[in-house]
């Protein structure tokens, strides 16, 4: 069996290694290729996240359509003021994250660290408020399960579905925040150590995408969970 490799298809050139960049992995040709690969990979990952949340959103839409009365009265149990403030906090953290990426791309280490810490703090406030809300629901027996009660709810039997979705969706969202929290701690450590330069700050940039995505999920959760038909009720 002679090995007759066809040569028509290709011609060879000498693989040129880019100038030694400590952050360039061996299997990439150059830094651009590596950076773009990371970016596409992150976007594709966010696509999976979108579909992951999509299943819960679908369940929400189906049951909201089926049991409007239960959803209205159960949703009215949430505190809009707290929800709106928390949304504001999360949007602020998105801004600080965007600025962190901005200063990373300019190579300004101290501002990068500052805005990463700001993002961390704002995320912490959001989670704290969320914890307070959960506690409040716990006190009022609004946790789905055996002891579930929905005082003064119309169609109270189906109100539990609303709260199942409420906890499912905000819980999944919060778990994403907690994971983000962990990654942020690592990034702050690395940024402070001076790992990132204006030429290479891919982890910061990729984490920024993740953080904004989590923000977007909340942007939808806020009106869907807190703002169903508040007509005739004071906003604050």
């Amino acid at each position: 069996m002679s090995s007759h490799a066809a040569s028509s298809h290709t011609s060879a050139v000498v693989g040129h290694e880019a100038a030694h960049d400590p952050n360039l992995k061996h299997h990439f040709e150059n830094a651009d290729q590596q950076k773009e690969s990371a970016s596409i990979g992150m976007w594709v990952f966010l696509l999976t996240e979108l579909m992951f949340f999509g299943g819960l959103f679908l369940a929400y839409f189906v049951y909201r359509q089926w049991y409007p009365a239960a959803f209205i009265s159960a949703s009215n149990k949430t505190d809009v003021l707290i929800g709106a403030i928390n949304t504001t906090v999360l949007i602020c953290s998105s801004l600080t994250m965007a600025l962190a990426v901005h200063y990373a791309s300019l190579g300004k280490k101290q501002l990068l660290v500052f805005f990463l810490i700001a993002t961390l703090l704002l995320g912490g406030i959001f989670l704290g408020v969320k914890g307070y809300e959960y506690h409040d629901k716990w006190v009022h027996h609004e946790i789905p399960g055996e002891h579930f009660e929905c005082e003064g709810c119309q169609d109270a039997g189906h109100a539990q579905l609303f709260f199942s979705l409420y906890f499912g969706m905000t819980g999944l969202h919060a778990s994403h925040m907690i994971i983000g929290f962990g990654i942020l701690l690592v990034l702050i450590f690395q940024a402070n150590r001076g790992d990132f330069t204006a030429k290479w700050y891919t982890p910061v940039e990729m984490f920024g995408l993740y953080w904004h995505f989590v923000d977007i999920v909340w942007i939808f959760l806020f009106p869907l969970l807190y703002l169903i038909d508040r007509v005739g009720r004071p906003l604050l």
Partner: peptide, 8 residues
């Protein structure tokens, strides 16, 4: 051994 260049 070397990165191939495709021509066809």
């Amino acid at each position: 051994e070397v990165t191939p260049v495709v021509t066809t």
